[in-house]
Simulated scan of single mutants.
Amino acid sequence: MAKDKTSYTCGLDAAVDVVGGKWKPFIIWELHVHGTLRFGELRRRVPGVSEKMLVQQLRELATDGVVHREVYREVPPRVEYSLTGLGRALNAALLPLGEWGDSYMEQIVSRERTTPV
């Protein structure tokens, strides 16, 4: 169920709501790196994501104004996705988080291996 967007308690709450989910950061990154992509190209660049999940995540990102969806009335139909200005700003905000992950990835993984279940 979608969160009531009027009930955010702080900016971090709003940001996590928009970028939350396993695949959204990867989608945003791929669109940042490669620019405009068609659905099939995007699916190939985000390994492991199902078609259904990619559609859902793209729909949510478009609803939140992060991704632009352009439909070309052709046969067969062509749909392209790109980042909006809001999406580019969000990607810039995610870069330090990725750098943090790069810096501490080994430590995180080693803790996971040694923590008893």
Rank of each mutant, 00 (worst) to 15 (best):
Q57Y: 13
E41M: 01
D13W: 03
A62E: 13
K52C: 06
L83T: 09
D102M: 13
L54M: 13
R59P: 00
V66R: 02
A15D: 08
P25D: 05
L95M: 01
S110V: 06
V55S: 12
A89E: 14
E51W: 03
R113N: 07
A15Q: 03
V16R: 11
L58R: 04
P96V: 00
R111D: 10
E74W: 13
R43V: 08
W100L: 09
G40K: 09
K22Q: 13
P116R: 00
G21S: 08
G11D: 14
A89G: 04
F26H: 13
D4A: 09
L31S: 02
R73C: 00
C10I: 04
E51D: 15
Q57G: 01
H32I: 00
K24G: 07
V55D: 12
F39L: 11
L61S: 03
H68P: 09
W100Q: 11
R59T: 15
S103T: 14
V71Q: 13
G35Q: 03
F39E: 01
N91E: 14
G35P: 12
R59H: 12
D13C: 06
L94E: 04
C10Q: 13
T63A: 14
E51A: 10
E30P: 03
V16T: 04
I28E: 02
K3V: 08
Q57L: 00
I27R: 00
Q56W: 02
E41Q: 15
V71D: 04
G48Y: 11
E99C: 10
L83S: 02
V55M: 11
G20N: 08
R45I: 03
V66S: 09
T6Q: 12
G40I: 07
E112A: 14
S103K: 14
G11S: 03
G85W: 12
L58A: 07
A92N: 07
Y104P: 04
A89Y: 00
L95K: 07
D13F: 00
H68L: 07
T36L: 08
V18M: 15
E51N: 13
T9M: 09
R44A: 14
I108K: 02
R113M: 05
W100V: 01
R111Y: 07
R59D: 15
G40H: 08
W23S: 08
K24F: 07
T114M: 09
D13A: 02
Y72M: 14
S7P: 06
R59K: 15
V67S: 06
